[in-house]
Write a protein that binds this DNA or RNA. Structure first.
Lengths: 336, 336
DNA sequence: GGGATCCACTGACACGTGTCAGTATGTGGA
DNA sequence: TCCACATACTGACACGTGTCAGTGGATCCC
């Protein structure tokens, strides 16, 4: 009933042993011989007092904390980044550490945050500024950034093409984004699309980017669709950078009175939350959250000296078949 | 070139003063008189060495950290919770503290996390378990939970009704969620809808809940729509708990060949990312992120002893007019 | 000249933990 | 009886910081 939180000294007093013994018991050290009797006394005392070790003291003494900082720079990537965060949280928790997500308010805010919390490793999905990199280096926090050129990254794009090809599509358009902050993600995917077409002997896909990250410009998409459909060798299917672009594609098609999937098939990527709610419902590719999270965590464990080398990158992904993709109609309906 | 990070002792040595002086300068204490000359020497030394104070030591000495923990229990609320997180991050950063988001993997994971980081205050958007509440109490971390019964919470619901009423709608359906974890948010909104109708002398709205949180059951929505439209005094407009429900409503209407907005108006809430991409584009209510964030932060500051009393709750919200709401047609088209 | 006052600065302590060297107590062997 | 040795435990230190009491020197007033 002291009102203040109890320390290991309180536990020691209550168990009638020294503080060192308490530390040995609570940290489960095997190199110290501790009879079951004493062990139980300490454990009971700790439980009775609701003892939780003081995070700051522990970090100070050990020289490093148990915190993993995930820097979310707010890149308008996909709304289910949260899936990655969840998976990563679970992985980190399993190692006795804790993952916390920091949404950086600005490029110069990192210093203040590092003065308030010192992680044992930082993970960023996006590229940081050179100043931020230097800062992390001077305070000695290793930084893990996803290797988006790793083999396997092309898998989701490959699945998009495979599904369209299996339905019989050959003339394919690829709708990507021009948003600068997304190029880090967009470029490897575009490469994956190109490689997938080559691998399957398909003609080179038409590739076009539209401005806007989260706020996709529907008018720009509509313009692109008319260009793709009115030339010779019109496109019969469009693969999209993500589900937002796919939804914009559906909206543009609706505005242009182009029937989906009768006149045009559309495939997305991410299986975003709204994908089942579009009409037609969106056929898309679902990435297992493991895709990214396991990759990041294995890199981090390597930096922490717990893994021998960076583990192989084995993404998982599968097609979610809904209603926006069918076989191309042999007699396309007249334009406009 | 030591390789290890520099401490305040290093700064002191380089500036040729004592460690205490360094601390006084760097913390900008006004009760200590320090000539500009010394001050500059210390500042220069700190800059040269890239000194960043050790978070753990500071927290240990001060007895409390500068961390604010936002517990995100993964309630399937809206995809732009991230807006609230961003706003809250900025508010917290302005006070010299740092906000970190913790997505809790399970109800028993909090203890482990509290052993790894000790926040000065915890904020939760959702209700926690009694065990978690007890735990926070024993370690002495104040918990802030949004007061969803605060005056002003009804504003977004009120705006939905106001917009529909202004267009001439009188028979209104309200589509909410039956998801248990969302009732904390859903109930106040339903109350807001009821109050708004009473205030404007509208007939009592028809209220129906559908199962599913993020994955709204479109078939269930379709069932509800046919019931609302086929009885006598058919509904001419549907207000929805959020944009996901509104999108499900549009999908169900499309499946039933009900024209929106010609035969039925639909209004959402949240201005979710996909709202401009539905067809018809969704008319909805946009809550300023301040709505929630400022409320939470003012409560937190009160707990930290920095604000005299909980500040008044002044939500901001406005209608985003797109294409899913018009005036009710005087001669509704035949059913089915 | 001597006491009072102010300025600029410093030495030493405490926060709570993990760990190492060391000590007291038994136990067995010569 | 004496030494060697394992067992069970403890005292004391260090991590880096913020802060308080204190100290030497200069300045001022009478």
């Amino acid at each position: 009933m002291t009102g203040s939180r109890s320390t290991s000294a309180d536990v020691a007093r209550r168990a009638g042993v020294s503080r060192a013994t308490v530390s040995y018991v609570l940290n489960g050290r095997t190199d110290q011989s501790i009879p079951a009797n004493t062990r139980d006394k300490v454990l009971a005392a700790a439980r009775d007092l609701g003892y939780v070790p003081h995070a700051a003291s522990r970090a100070l003494r050990r020289g490093t904390s148990n915190l993993v900082l995930l820097i979310n720079s707010g890149v308008p990537w996909s709304t289910n980044v949260t899936d990655v965060e969840d998976e990563l949280t679970a992985l980190v928790a399993a190692s006795g550490r804790s993952l916390v997500v920091w949404r950086r308010p600005g490029a110069d805010a990192l210093q203040g945050t590092l003065a308030n919390l010192e992680p044992c490793v930082a993970i960023s999905m996006d590229a940081l500024t050179s100043g931020e990199n230097r800062l992390l280096a001077t305070v000695g926090v290793p930084l893990v950034a996803a290797d988006l050129a790793a083999p396997g990254t092309g898998l989701p794009a490959d699945l998009q093409i495979e599904h369209l090809a299996r339905q019989g599509h050959r003339r394919i358009g690829y709708l990507t984004t021009d948003e600068p902050s997304l190029q880090r993600f967009a470029t490897p995917r575009t490469d994956g699309i190109l490689a997938a077409c080559v691998r399957r002997g398909l003609p080179e896909p038409r590739i076009a980017g539209v401005p806007g990250g989260l706020a996709v410009d529907v008018a720009a998409v509509a313009g692109q669709l008319t260009r793709w459909l009115n030339g010779r060798d019109p496109v019969t299917a469009v693969a999209c950078f993500n589900d937002l672009h796919a939804a914009a594609c559906l909206a543009a098609a609706s505005d242009l009175r182009i029937g989906v999937p009768t006149d045009l098939s559309v495939i997305g990527l991410d299986d975003d939350i709204f994908a089942p709610l579009t009409r037609p419902a969106l056929t898309t590719v679902r990435l297992g959250p493991q895709h990214f999270a396991r990759h990041l965590w294995s890199l981090a464990r390597h930096h922490l000296g717990e893994a021998p080398g960076p583990a192989a990158f084995t993404p998982t992904a599968h097609i979610v078949e809904r209603a926006s993709v069918t076989s191309p109609s042999p007699f396309p309906s007249p334009k406009r």
